[in-house]
Simulated assay, not measured.
Amino acid sequence: MTQQRGNRRELLAEAAIEVLAKEGGRGLTHRAIDRAARVPEGTTKNYYPNRSALFEAIAHYLAERHTAALEELCDQIPEDLRPEEVTALYAAMLRRMSGSAQTQFLALFELHLEGVRNPEVRKMLGEISRANVDTAVRLHSAVGRRISVRGAGLLDAGMLGVALATLSLPDDLVGELGFGDPEATSRALLTLARARGESSLEVLRDSAS
């Protein structure tokens, strides 16, 4: 019975993410989630009695899975990792945020808006950001480069902002700003982030990587 209940919560959380990404915060209702999850009407409300509980459930679900994925990534960092592979990794992240993981990213953005008013959601967003920062520091350390916590935070915010701009701005402006090139954008963000922990000469020397 416990396992079934756990599965039901996961099913509702995944359906809620789909609804939040598609309909936005205003469209996140118990009935909409029931329909998306294909469960009897009233099921979601039994688990999450109000909208705050819905947002918090989504935040916990995304934070738990995101931090677990980054822990696995850090545990598997190869000893021969190269700087260009770090750049490629961040470029792949940008592509996913506006591509295959677009639903999760849009839900994450809606959570950021909710986090302004909801302390529990803000706490979970903090866990996601902290995991991103720690991962950036560990990846840079693995290739012998320095990046400060502040620099890693700027990188995290920059990735979030670029992905949002790519999805929300007109295509011609996205192209003009260069955001349609994940590799070049990632290289620029990484260069700016490392500027917080390295001298200007070191950053310029490494920026081509």
Rank of each mutant, 00 (worst) to 15 (best):
L108V: 02
V137Y: 09
M159L: 09
L169G: 15
S148W: 14
S209W: 02
L169R: 05
M97P: 04
S148H: 05
K123A: 11
P78G: 05
L164G: 05
G153L: 07
L204N: 10
V137Q: 10
G180K: 01
I128R: 06
S168E: 05
R205P: 00
N132D: 02
G175F: 13
Q102K: 03
A59Q: 00
S100G: 03
R138M: 15
R96Y: 01
L164M: 12
V86T: 15
R51L: 07
M97E: 05
E14Y: 10
R5F: 08
L189V: 14
A37E: 14
A36Q: 15
P49I: 12
G6T: 08
E85I: 07
L192W: 05
R145S: 12
N132T: 07
S98C: 02
R35H: 03
F179A: 12
L177R: 11
E71A: 11
A88H: 08
H66P: 04
I77F: 09
A16T: 14
H66R: 01
V19G: 02
G42H: 08
E202G: 14
D206T: 08
L28R: 15
C74I: 15
D75T: 00
V149P: 05
K22Q: 14
R138K: 15
S207A: 15
E10R: 11
Y48P: 06
G153W: 10
Q4Y: 14
M159P: 00
Y48C: 08
Q3Y: 10
F179W: 12
L167H: 10
L94R: 07
A184C: 10
A195Q: 05
R96D: 09
A37V: 07
F105C: 00
L70D: 08
S52V: 06
G153H: 00
L164I: 13
A36H: 14
R95C: 14
L169C: 05
N7K: 10
A88P: 05
A13Y: 07
G99T: 00
M97H: 04
I77S: 02
G42Q: 02
L169Y: 09
L204M: 13
G197W: 03
A68K: 12
E183Y: 13
T29I: 05
L169E: 09
R9E: 11
T43I: 09
E72F: 07
E64D: 10
H30M: 08
D156Y: 14
P119M: 04
L94Y: 00
P49G: 05
A13V: 01
G126E: 06
N7I: 11
Q4E: 10
V116H: 14
S52Y: 06
A68M: 09
A91Q: 07
D172A: 04
E41G: 03
E198C: 08
A59S: 06
D134Y: 04
G153Q: 05
L94P: 04
L113Y: 00
A32T: 13
L192Y: 12
E23C: 03
A107R: 03
L154H: 13
R51Y: 00
P170K: 02
A92K: 15
D171N: 03
R5K: 01
P170D: 08
H30G: 15
T191K: 09
D34Q: 02
T191G: 11
Q3H: 12
